[in-house]
């Protein structure tokens, strides 16, 4: 290879390689601080700060949802695959995709008793898509009323 080209090639390799190394080191240093939310296991382990605004994510546990009859107040538990769970209190309108068994991310304060007073609830969707008929056939599962808005 021509010496000038070789020099420029090496410069490009150093540029991309050097920046990649820098970024990799930064990302390792930041470690889990780039997580969008804490898992119930992390909260149980005391990693989440108390009384500060945090996000927590997990699956809404089956039969854990309790709705108040006279207000928009709801409470439910979110859990992870390791069996940790945390109780969430929320007052407001839940997203359409919110239901038991669905992944959610809640924003709120962690109380000293280990509950979360949520100010926002977001539904987390997974990357799996299915026609409604197939989903019903697979698990005899019919989406509950919150998704009936799509049928109108």
């Amino acid at each position: 290879m021509h010496p000038n080209r070789r020099k420029r090639l090496l410069m490009v390799i150093f540029l991309v390689g050097g920046l990649s190394t820098t970024l990799a080191l930064v990302l390792v240093a930041l470690n889990r601080n780039l997580d969008f939310f804490y898992s119930p296991a992390a909260i149980a382990a005391g990693q989440a700060p108390v009384s500060k605004r945090i996000r927590a994510g997990g699956m809404v546990l089956q039969d854990s949802l309790v709705k108040a009859s006279d207000s928009l107040r709801v409470e439910f538990s979110i859990g992870d695959l390791q069996g940790f769970e945390v109780r969430v209190f929320f007052e407001g309108i839940l997203p359409d995709l919110f239901r038991e068994g669905q992944g959610v991310v809640v924003t709120g304060r962690l109380t000293t008793e280990g509950f979360i007073e949520a100010s926002q609830v977001l539904a987390k969707h997974d990357e799996n898509y299915m026609p409604r008929e197939l989903a019903e056939a697979l698990e005899g599962y019919h989406p509950p009323t919150s998704s009936q808005a799509y049928d109108r």
Binding site: R32, L34, D35, F36, F37, S39, G57, V105, L122, K124, H125, D126, E127, N128, Y129, M130, P131, L134
Partner: peptide, 19 residues
């Protein structure tokens, strides 16, 4: 990281995540 965005939908090397 834990993100609100779901995992990748489209991949040439893996089985599709949809019918």
């Amino acid at each position: 990281w834990f993100t609100l965005h779901q995992g990748k939908t489209f991949s040439l090397t893996q089985a599709p995540s949809m019918p």
